[in-house]
Amino acid sequence: MADIIMAGTGGQGVLTAGKILIDIAAADDKNVSWTSFYSAEMRGGTAACCVVVSEDEIGTPYPDKFDILFAMTEDAYNKYIGDMRDGGKVIVNQSLFSTCEFPKNVEVYGVEASGIANEMGNSRGANLALLGAMIKGTGMMDKKKFGETLDRYFSKKGKASAKNLDCYNKGYEQALKI
């Protein structure tokens, strides 16, 4: 269904965003895989995870090419934009992005994810705002259903907070095609 690369800087919650995504897709009866690119350091540096969501048995959890790029930083965008399939969707965090020329073979959606998170007093919620933009841009899941499962995800972890859903909703609403 989709090969997704999610990337950013360590500490931005990129890996968590991927885990939220597979949690929700799995509950929706999909097969999922989540792999991360890890380094010896526990913090800092680039962070990336690859999520595969599929109706069928998943072959490689490390796809060569991607349908969706979820980029929390411009560096992350630069690193993976060359690996996109034609017609792929790119979701960028415009708060950490300068203007640039996007390739013609992909559709790009942007949102001020870090800005929204700061505004909502939930500085660690930028990943959720960008997830909102991703759900809007890709249409891969129903907005409301995704939101509800997101809430359950945090409740399960004992970290339920209305601010999380707010970040997600705002990200969804404010995301625009660039």
Partner: peptide
């Protein structure tokens, strides 16, 4: 290392 760190159902 790949199978070990991978999350699946």
């Amino acid at each position: 290392g790949a199978i070990s760190q991978m999350i699946e159902k």
